[in-house]
Amino acid sequence: MMKVVGEEGTAMPDFVQYLKAEFLDEVYLQQDAFHDVDGASSADRQKHVFSVIHGIMTTPLTFKTRDNARQEFLRWQQIAKDWNRIPMEKPEFKTTEEKLVHAVEQHRSTGEEN
């Protein structure tokens, strides 16, 4: 649909929905098959990661501009992809997870003020 009407013809809530879908695809559905950690994740890890991603997917988000929305999502993607490459038992796994959740949460709280 966005191919037909273009980004500028898509309502903001729909555009955010689209970015969320892209986020899910990039960080959860896709894997780097040649990476030792990302190449094979245990069921526990998958469940855990999914619950966090699901949390982000269901968080209501608003943005001032589309460019701003895309930029934020790209930043979160970067963090989430780094997270996918950290073994679950390492302490960085937890800190990166917190960093991701925090980044989204921070945007949500400041975004609402605007």
């Binding site: 191919k3 273009g6 980004e7 500028e8 589309r66 460019d67 895309r70 930029q71 790209l74």
Partner: peptide, 12 residues
């Protein structure tokens, strides 16, 4: 492809 269809280019 998008550009050739005449859509506005975003910053990205």
């Amino acid at each position: 492809e998008k550009r050739s269809m005449g859509f506005r280019m975003t910053e990205y």
